[in-house]
Amino acid sequence: MKMETARDVIRTFLTDSLDAPDLGESEDIFAAGLVGSMFALQLVEFVESRFEIEIENEDLELENFNSVLGIVRLVERKRPA
């Protein structure tokens, strides 16, 4: 069975949560107006619990959270290899 990658998990979370099945990997979910006021909170909780990392103040850059690829890069940077 094919292993699910972090990219798959993040893409599924975003497309499901935002009801955006055609979401592009670089598409800015904030600029596209897909995100409600509580979503940021949900996103932080998801990323931290699913990948066992801790989001810190210096990680608060929109580019770390505003697209599938941005979140993948953040997770890969924060997780020890």
């Binding site: 990658t5 972090a6 998990v9 499901d16 909780e45 998801f46 699913r50 990948f51 997770v75 890969e76």
Partner: peptide, 11 residues
């Protein structure tokens, strides 16, 4: 959607 952490090798 249970937040079971991913194994580290799958990223």
């Amino acid at each position: 959607a249970v937040a079971s952490p991913m194994p580290r090798s799958t990223s």
